[in-house]
Amino acid sequence: MYRFLLSPRWLGALALTVVASAVMVWLGNWQLDRYQGRTEVNERIDAGLRMAPVPLTEAFRAPTGGPGTAGPPPAEDKVWSRITATGRYDPSNTILVRGRTADSRVGFEVLTPLVLADGTALLVDRGWIPPAPGGATAQPSVPATPTGDVTVVGRVHETESGAGTVARRNGMLETRRVGVPGLARELPYPVYGGYLLLDEQTPPADPVFKAVPVGHANNWQNFGYVVQWWLFAVMALFGYGWVARREARRAAGIDTKTAPLDRAAEPTPSASA
């Protein structure tokens, strides 16, 4: 009844179905990895908000190069952890990161190097400020930094991907990306390999700054893709089986659609017969 499945046409269809299903299972597994990775990031973000701050050196390895170099990036499990550091701001090397959004408005994030006692520096994202009147790229007036020693508390952020262009305008550096290695080349001291999103500061920060919003990764979207791809794989195999069964029933003359037509085509016996 199912001998036709050994024909070249059906064997080819089976091979194509199996390959397609295997690819869909692989895509589902890939999305599952992304779901698990994003879930871990979300858990670290939440844990960072709850944890007590630890010293800078527990999250970063100190830079060992000369001026203009960046240290090693923070370990993955240290990203979003809460740390504290004490140093002096260097306002002469303030960095404006344009094109940043907060409360549905486009403005700037302000990074200022915090120079530590050993001469190294940590880039501190002090927060978001609106642009000056004239458009989203109009350079804002940046509030002055506190003088003397400053203690900061914030969350570790890894360097952003992509090498944004760094240019100096009106005495301040401007960029679109917080690429720490590229920014370090513009600075006169070695810099830690990530930066800090400021939560608290002593003396207090200027109230014009808004805290940089930290969004959670949309991990449930990836989970939906997992279910989708695995369901497609099952449907492909089921579809092959359904078509094969239908073909077998038709070949055996018991197909429910064609059988009534075949009976109708038979001649009606005459009464004389």
Rank of each mutant, 00 (worst) to 15 (best):
V54G: 09
T258M: 08
R263D: 13
T86E: 08
V178E: 01
K257T: 11
L11T: 11
L14F: 09
L187E: 02
A248I: 00
V214R: 10
R3E: 11
A273H: 15
W30M: 00
L114T: 06
S7Y: 11
W30N: 05
L116M: 08
A47Q: 09
K210N: 08
V97A: 02
E186F: 11
G215T: 15
S141K: 15
F238M: 14
N93H: 15
A117L: 12
W242S: 13
R44D: 04
G162I: 03
L237D: 04
L122P: 06
T120F: 09
L237R: 07
V124M: 03
E200V: 09
V106A: 06
S104N: 14
R50T: 12
V178P: 02
F209G: 01
A259I: 13
G37K: 15
L14M: 08
W128V: 01
G162E: 04
L231V: 09
V226S: 00
A13S: 15
L237F: 07
T151I: 00
E158S: 15
D199Y: 08
P8V: 02
V41K: 06
V152K: 06
N170H: 12
R61C: 12
A47P: 08
W229I: 00
P67Q: 06
T165C: 11
G164T: 01
E58V: 13
P73W: 06
G239V: 06
T86S: 04
P190D: 00
F209Y: 10
P113R: 03
T175G: 02
Q31D: 01
R250S: 09
G215Y: 15
P140S: 00
P188R: 07
E109N: 10
D262N: 11
L183V: 05
V23W: 09
V142S: 04
T69A: 01
P190M: 03
A252L: 09
L196T: 04
P74V: 01
P207R: 05
T256C: 10
L32F: 09
G65R: 00
G134M: 03
G154Q: 03
R105L: 10
I254L: 14
S141Y: 10
A184I: 01
T145C: 12
A52N: 10
V79K: 08
